[in-house]
Design a protein around this nucleic acid. Sequence first.
DNA 1: TACCTCCACGTTTTT
DNA 2: CGTGGAGGTA
Length: 728
Amino acid sequence: MSILEGLNPQQLEAVTLPHQSALILAGAGSGKTRVLTTRIAWLIQTGQIGPLSVMAVTFTNKAAREMLTRISAMLPINTRGMWVGTFHGLCNRILRAHYRDAGLPQTFQILDSADQLAVIKRVMKAMNVDDEKYPPRQAQNFINSAKEQGLRAAQVDAPDDFSRRLLTVYEAFEAQCNREGVVDFAELLLRCYELLGRNELLRDHYRGRFRHILVDEFQDTNRLQYHWLKLLAGPNNTIFAVGDDDQSIYAFRGAHAGNMLDLERDFGIEKVIKLEQNYRSHGNILDAANALIRHNRTRLGKNLWTSEGGGEPLRVYQAMTDIEEAAYIVDEVRQLHNEGVALSDMALLYRSNAQSRVLEHALFSAGISYRVYGGLRFFERQEIKHALAYLRLTANPDDDGAFLRVVNFPTRGIGNRSLEQLQEAAAGRGISLWQAACANTPSGKAGASITAFIQLIEAMRKACENLPLPEIVDHVVATSGLIAHYQTEKEGADRIENLNELTNAAAAFVGQDGPITLISAEGEIRSEGLDPLNAFLAHAALEAGEHQAGEGADALQLMTVHSAKGLEFHTVFISGLEEGLFPHENSVSEQDGPEEERRLMYVALTRARRRLYLTHAQTRMLHGQTRYNVPSRFFDEIPDELLKRINTTKFSGFVAAKGYEAGSKARAPMVETGASGWRIGQSVVHPKFGAGVIVNAEGRGSDARVQVNFRDAGLKWLALDYAKLVAA
DNA sequence: TACCTCCACGTTTTT
DNA sequence: CGTGGAGGTA
């Protein structure tokens, strides 16, 4: 059977495009992964290129695995040798192969975000930077966003004192990382970009090899990733990019959907192919999504359609409280489950994680099994981090982060003062803590403890020299004292289990990267395998692992809308559809904020195949106080005929004006302002700000102020004596 | 060193 | 409301 069979005309056109760069505008559920993988298979099957000439780039490891699986299913070839991976994974591969040219030690370690933040904190402390005035998180953002624009500290523009200070932190951070032989995520990309930029030999080698570069989720690329792709493509290779500007929801972390337009221009793409036939959802769902996203001004333009029928209308449920909202969802889930829909084929989505608590509580009480995405992942667990730190020290003793993490864990009598001495000695001589500890062993008890620690690590390293990877992990975990430590802890059993699981993870990890091309200065090419321990440590940093166990079980899926991207379910509940929550209040005033929120809603809607619930609550407990929320503006952006209002809860005037049945006012305390008669929860109209709802009040008499949540203007405090508020 | 209390904070997140 | 970090005390 031909791999091209069953493709629609647009998919076929994209797959069989002649040797030229292309931009595929692929709507939700339009078969973009299929197009991407079939394109690769077709190029190889027709003999146009060999597997070695393909590079496919994704954002997540999951997507990369999925792609490899699908290619293997289509072609009887070995997919090793094909470079399919994440931006970071591929950059890591290149940097490992050319560590010397990249100015890195062979055993360089990768910092995850938490590791990076720890280094920044350490550096800031050493520089005496006030962390009240300069929050380390902000310094981290500053550094990462600079790197994502391809900027080294020397190239960053710092117009004011504040950014000048952050810039010095950036400089010191870079210096520290170089001393330790560690790189953060952004650094992997920037290093690789710089390496290929200045080393012609390497650049030509990779350009000669990767004739076809395919990119998934192109709308999520940042500027640096775009320039990296451009550099790798050079003048002769082609980029096949698949993306959807309407699903660009990661601008806050540097994603730049404008890269799609740049690609068109820079690569002379004459015709953008649009995949608009949707194979996922029924018509009403798509009509709703199309109608909603039409409210965005900056779009490339696209309209999803299906050959299937309209299906059910979208169900709208308006609850009085968040608790009642949860109860309704529980009832519906239970009923659908009884009707035969698997729990795992239903998703409960929310804008922010804080919303999950009430929902979880209701599900738990009802005995419905559920799974929450997000939170700690396997390689991020404390005990795993500790074990990895021991492993990292045996591979690269200069890794100060790893040193500090375990030098006194389990406790071995190395207190703060001896560590401070050590840090001073290291900083003074510009060496690592390990080197400082080796160089001048302090006398006395503390000195002996440090010496013992050094000997412990040295012994580990020697013992592991010729062991296979799983045994290395086993040995290090056993001799580190971690197991013994957790045995004395009350909650230690799970941690010990995880540590044992780490050995299994090591056993399951067989250097997936295979041999790596090396180019010496003379230009000769040879191959070398990567040392398994370092490969495993890189893997641990680059792929933090599954969120939680129990993925096999049939359970309702709870997650943020962001993490739902790319997934699909028979039934989807979108909860908390209220102004201030979704769209989120912080986004309303942001540049491009409202449009990004709308794209987020678009993503949420298009997750559903058959049934979609949109719910909101009038009253919600948030940050310890009750908030009164207006229904989300998104309800107004979906045609009424697509919506089916489940209930006719009595709402006050403002809501009634939007199509709900008018009725009695919500019971809420009178604002204590004497005779004013305003109520919390009451709908009001302001001459300038328009319609809103009173959500809070304070003061009395002439000082009385009310807080109003306006549809368009957001939250505002108004003095009742001055503001010309009118009851709606 | 370990535990406890207090305080501040609270969008989205992969690598 | 609930959590996580920091700082203080036993």
